[in-house]
Design a binder for these strands. Structure first.
Length: 554
DNA sequence: GAAGTTTAGGCTCAAGGACC
DNA sequence: GGTCCTTGAGCCTAAACTTC
């Protein structure tokens, strides 16, 4: 009700999304007076707007569309290079009036955030309708196999389709976008990534809807719990769990479990596996089902072996099918020839790239060219390496921060899984720990880490400035004492709202015994960073907790 | 201001190698 | 042989930048 209506001028530009979309929140005529007498700090307004957009995960497109009635490009321009007030025309000043108005009332911001959420929900509903139409028009006689419903990866519907089908109780129809079209396996014998089992309960909601409505989940606690459950039940295989429950490959599961990202750093899509894990943990029959799958797989593997041994004995002239032939029902040879061999960088090449990274985390095209020619690599390989390295360093660094923050997360078990048992010699972990392997062995070294911190400063990743040195929040406090342990807290996420994970992260105290002592300088730095991080998280959560997902309309 | 292009980040897959 | 970890690469999206 407090959302201002659009101005007559901007109304034409601000196109409503759909009939179900809410009232757009642009400023009303009375709220955006063009008062030429006043002087506005356009840079400050732009900065604050930017901050709010980032904080609330609101895209420039949505903001421009609903608040300013401008395109994303224009919003980017205004926010990145706001002109001084005195150089703006009356028309040019209008967006700043609207932005100021937007900032003035938190309801506006929250409304816009819910619009963003609802846009996604509306999309899902549209896709759902399209799908049901498609299904009804499809020939009913065609037997449904996992392959027959498999969307091409490039299909824009594939992801949403998977989400819609995935929980609609139709496991056969649920294929993720990760599935390659060539994976059509009429036998359906092998489980594939992208065929997660239907999730328990919530049958009316798609996974995306659930993700959108989910309160903040403690990703560390969830992965920890999942690992525990899997280990306790002799279900260590990441592949089975990934393909059956998450619809992901083993590699992805490994990554997720070893280096879970904090919830607030994940996009909606990135949160999906965690919601799936959370729902899986809640299912009383989850372990049973997975064990059944394991048994079935074993049986299938046994049958396959028998079959292959039979066919071997019948093969003519020693023409033996290779492993690829066995895996894919289509085309072994042609496919094999099309496949690019994986590039494996040698230690010298990695070393050279790392050195280049330390000097410049964002190398110019010229530098990339030079590096590529020096190392005899393709430029795309060099670009990809930098891309991946930056990304992984960020993640490793964040985990480090969380560890330092007080034993939450992977560190509470005696070191991040990514740090635990790193391969001898290989030691290419992005955290700069090289081959030291464990946290313990890193004790006292601290060299690589510092180097990377330096590098990340260059990238503007330093969080210290974010806190602005203010210590008025419970930043320095231990989570248990800071009052952050309530719902929505990332420190002790014991109450997880509708998803209700229990005893999450109950082992925060364990860290005190497992995290080795560091040198004082390192400790101070970590404490300071952790404090700032807590501060940021606290402020974000405080803001986020004001919005009640149950009020969302779908 | 709109539209097109470039760049970076996020997510994921899957190959290759190491470990058990 | 099965499993896990690491990591190069592909694809998608959002933001920034450029052109008209």
């Amino acid at each position: 009700s407090s959302i201002p209506t659009s101005t007559p001028g901007s109304a034409s530009a601000a196109v409503p999304l759909a009939a179900s979309s809410p009232q757009p929140p642009p400023a009303s005529p009375d709220m955006a007076p063009v008062n030429d007498g006043e002087d506005m700090d356009t840079a400050e307004i732009a900065r604050q707007v930017k901050e709010q957009l980032i904080k609330h995960n609101i895209g420039q497109r949505v903001f421009g569309h609903y608040v300013l009635g401008l395109s994303q490009g224009s919003v980017s321009e205004i926010l990145a290079r706001p002109k001084p007030w005195n150089k703006l025309t009356i028309r040019g000043k209008e967006p700043f009036h609207k932005m100021r108005q937007f900032l003035a009332d938190e309801q506006n911001i929250l409304a816009l955030r819910s619009i963003q959420g609802r846009q996604r929900a509306v999309l899902i509903i549209i896709v759902r309708q399209l799908l049901s139409q498609m299904k009804s028009t499809q020939a009913e006689g065609t037997p449904k196999t996992s392959a027959s419903c498999s969307p091409a990866p490039e299909s824009p519907l594939s992801s949403a389709e998977e989400s819609v089908n995935g929980l609609a109780g139709d496991p056969l129809a649920s294929q993720s976008s990760g599935l390659k079209p060539l994976s059509e396996d009429p036998s359906g014998g092998e489980s594939q990534p992208g065929t997660p089992l239907p999730l328990p309960g919530h049958s009316g909601l798609s996974i995306q809807e659930m993700v959108a409505m989910s309160p903040e989940l403690d990703t560390y606690a969830i992965t920890k719990k999942v690992k525990e459950v899997l280990t306790d039940n002799n279900l260590e295989g990441q592949r089975l769990f990934g393909e059956t429950i998450l619809g992901l490959t083993q590699g992805s599961v490994s990554d997720l479990l070893a280096r879970p990202k904090p919830w607030h750093k994940l996009s909606l899509k990135g949160r999906e596996p965690f919601v799936r894990m959370q729902l899986w943990l809640q299912d009383p029959h989850s372990v049973e089902k997975l064990m059944d799958m394991k048994r079935l797989e074993k049986k299938a593997a046994y049958m396959k072996r028998r079959l292959s041994s039979l066919s071997d004995s019948h093969s003519v002239d020693g023409v033996l099918p290779g492993p690829d032939y066995m895996q894919g029902s289509q085309s072994p040879v042609g496919q094999q020839q099309l496949k690019k061999p994986r590039v494996v960088l040698g230690p010298e090449e990695k070393e050279a790239l790392k050195k280049a990274y330390q000097q410049k985390p964002y190398p110019s095209p010229k530098t990339i060219e030079e590096l590529a020619s020096q190392l005899n690599l393709k430029t795309s390989t060099v670009i990809n390496w930098f891309h991946n390295y930056r990304s992984r360093i960020r993640r490793e660094l964040f985990i480090e921060e969380i560890q330092a923050a007080g034993g939450m997360g992977p560190g509470s078990e005696g070191g991040s899984p990514s740090l635990r048992g790193s391969k001898s010699g290989e030691g290419d972990s992005c955290d700069g720990t090289e081959s030291e392997g464990t946290v313990e062995t890193r004790q006292g070294l601290g060299v690589g880490l510092e180097d990377h911190r330096g590098a990340c400063k260059d990238q503007g990743m330093e969080v210290e400035s974010e806190a602005g040195g203010s210590n008025d929040s419970p930043a320095e406090l231990d989570c248990s004492a800071s009052g952050l342990a309530g719902p929505g807290s990332s420190c002790v996420q014991s109450g997880l709202g509708i998803f209700g994970l229990t005893e999450a992260s109950s082992t925060s105290s364990a860290s005190s015994t497992n995290v080795p002592a560091r040198n004082p300088r390192d400790n101070n730095l970590r404490k300071k960073k952790a404090a700032n991080l807590n501060n940021i998280i606290h402020r974000l959560e405080k803001a986020a907790s004001k919005e009640d997902p149950s009020e969302w309309e779908f």
